[in-house]
């Protein structure tokens, strides 16, 4: 029986390039990012002053914050997709990034004149921002789940968390091209809240779907 199986598997053998896993992840990411970007353009549209915004530091802080978290998520996903690996380093970097942005946000809050504080926390879109982030993350999350189901994660919870982080942060990155908010506390609070919600969804999905 086992000998037959081995024979069958040997006949089925096709070469696998050594970076095959990263290629599949890349395809999933590209599909998710393109879909999410198209959705943002058609549904919300880029901010009207996008080119002017390129000259402001807060645009780049939003850009780098979300992209850094997204890259760490993708890095972690590429690790935990392999059996027996845990992606500890990228997830530790995530904690550092979130912590440092939170500290910067705290400083900007206490140093702001009291009458401006409400504005830099709530902006004009606080209650919709997390929803948009979640919505724009969905194509990325679905692509990432399809990716992970082909892999061999031995810790489904961690695998779900990683794909959730990747999808949530990159969805927020796409959203940042629409968003006109300029407060650091706003970014820390509402962007992070949207990303955290997607991390939660990813973790639950991981526990449900990443069995193999």
């Amino acid at each position: 029986m086992t000998a037959e199986l081995i024979e069958r598997l040997a006949q089925d053998l096709k070469p696998v390039p050594s970076n095959a896993l990263l290629k599949v992840l890349g395809i999933a990411l590209a599909f998710g990012l393109v879909t999410s970007t198209i959705a943002m353009m058609l549904w919300l549209g880029p901010r009207p002053d996008l080119f002017k915004a390129f000259g402001t530091p807060i645009f780049w802080i939003k850009f780098v914050y979300t992209l850094a978290l997204g890259c760490c998520g993708a890095w972690a996903a590429s690790r935990v997709a392999r059996p027996g690996e845990n992606g500890r380093l990228p997830l530790a970097i995530v904690c550092l990034v979130v912590l440092s942005v939170a500290i910067a946000a705290g400083i900007s809050y206490v140093t702001a004149p009291p009458q401006e504080r409400h504005a830099i926390v709530m902006g004009s879109s606080a209650l919709v921002c997390p929803h948009y982030v979640i919505a724009l993350s969905m194509p990325l999350l679905i692509a990432a789940i399809v990716f992970m189901r082909r892999m061999a994660p031995t810790n489904p919870t961690l695998a779900g968390l990683s794909v959730g982080l990747m999808a949530g942060a990159l969805g927020a990155w796409v959203y940042s091209f629409h968003c006109t908010e300029a407060g650091l506390p706003f970014l820390t609070l509402w962007y992070s809240l949207g990303i955290a919600a997607v991390v939660l969804v990813g973790t639950v999905a991981g526990r449900l779907f990443f069995r193999w």
């Binding site: 086992t2 199986l5 598997l9 089925d12 599949v24 059996p83 061999a152 193999w212």
Partner: peptide, 14 residues
């Protein structure tokens, strides 16, 4: 054993 061999085969890209 067979299940493990199948998994090793199907997921060898990991």
């Amino acid at each position: 054993v067979q299940e493990a061999l199948l998994a090793i085969h199907a997921r060898r890209m990991t």
